[in-house]
Amino acid sequence: MLVRLKVFRFDPEKDGDPYYQDYEVQAEPTDRLLDCLNRIRWEQDPTLAFRMSCGHGVCGSDGMRINGVCGLACQKLVESFGLEVRVEPLPVFPVIKDLVVDLEPFFQRYHSIKPYLIALSSPPGHERRQSPEDIRPLEDAIRCILCACCTSSCPVSQDPQTADYVGPAALVRAFRYLFDSRDESTSERIAMLDRQDRVWGCRTLWKCTEVCPKEIPVTKLIGHIKRRIYETKRESNEGEIRHAPKDEAGNGSWGEDSEG
């Protein structure tokens, strides 16, 4: 079948403004959008720029906006979008060229939440024990591939007024270490996350959860961080928490109990 792609183009070397270019490629219904883009670049227009690597949803390179929804080009089959598709770069991040965005701000924010295990006591000569129940809460979070689809789709991250929000991807990784039974910096992590530009920036709008290519319940995980902060503070009698959880979508206050 003949598929028409409307592709966002911008080359800072020669374009004053971005524009859309139409391409037509022959494709099978089971071909990936990534196959179509490669066919364009290899057979029609070698100047088209987009990232890719593994081609099957593991490396996280080919996040882009596909018919208005962020996703991985290697996970979208032609049959899922029919004869016409609009392809644009991930929002939120500055465009470098065509579908390639500058992910430096994404990784910087990711680094800001100390994404590594902090264990102060010296480890034993073998493994530390963790039960399957200890591990279970982490199973969704560790599927994250840092593709940035969630952060790009988040209305809070998209809003220039709240652009300093660390974003859902960084919070998923923060969750992964906060809830790891081996981590020994819980109070520091809680203090680090208890900020308007960190966990309280989340307004429980569920966009991250809707787009996640690895089916991670992102909003729920962020909700667990909020509840953990709230409960820790209540236990320590600190009184009022600084930032009350917001609930603009009308869902459960923590994002834990509703699918949205």
Binding site: P123, E127, R129, I135, D183
Partner: peptide
């Protein structure tokens, strides 16, 4: 393997936590 575990790799576990 133990070193990876100490670095934080969340290995799948047996019933007794190994």
């Amino acid at each position: 393997i133990y070193e990876l575990e100490h670095m934080g790799v969340p290995f799948s576990r047996t019933r007794d936590g190994r």
